[in-house]
Amino acid sequence: MAARVAQLLKRSLPPLIVLGVVIAGWYALAYSLDNNFASGDGSALLVPPPHQLFVGLNDATLDRITQATWISLSTAFVGFLLAIAIGVTLGVAMSFSRSLESALWPWLIAIQVTPIIVLTPIIIRVVGASFGARLTVTVLIAFFPITSNTLFGVRSVSSGLHDVFTLARATRWQRLIRLQLPAASPTIFAGLRVSAGLAVIGAIVGDFFFTRGTPGLGRLITFFFQDTRSGPMFVTALIAAGIGLGFFLLVSLLRRLLVSPWDQP
């Protein structure tokens, strides 16, 4: 027990030290900016020090943040699930057919390298300013790492393992389900980790262009920015960061449960 506590401390200490440094830097920044406390009532105008984050968070503001969080969270989550379904399906399909791969790959690259902020207004024009448009933006930014990692993972199964399944006269479906996808799962999870963060970015960046309806975190942060409400703006940013971190941790937990027990060096 004591050994486990010591190990936990050893693992937690370095990031906690960095957190301390960040908070210290944050205070230093807040108190070194000219005019940050020019309002005269002690509240910050530009960068609130950490202890002032929740100053000015009244019920109405909290309601807006809660609604925006729900919109961005649900967009990122559903978009991420769709990106997984589409990404894995595309990766598997391309692993089966070189022709399909050569037909699709350049276009997938083109989508990947085009900044999502350029595509978002086009998507809203085509799909309309709906939840579907938010999902489309999220899927477009998040699916590619899953597709490329699935393709690479499925193709990288050793020939020896394929021979075992060939001798067992496995069907293509059996080979996919019982051999290729499990063998590719460490690689697929590496793609999921990247895509989890991208899905949150897609949900929030896409939101900047939605001028109607209840705002998500992206548009809400611009409102707070324009109103010079630094405290709520920082809280909103921290929530967005927390959602991204939560997605990353969720994928890491799933990997730890499903892959780590057997995927040892």
Binding site: S158, G160, L161, D163, V164, L167, L179, P182, A183, S185, V259, W262, D263
Partner: peptide, 12 residues
């Protein structure tokens, strides 16, 4: 049955 040079076990 075939036993390969490498054990070719399913690691999962």
């Amino acid at each position: 049955g075939f036993v390969f040079q490498e054990p070719a076990l399913l690691p999962w």
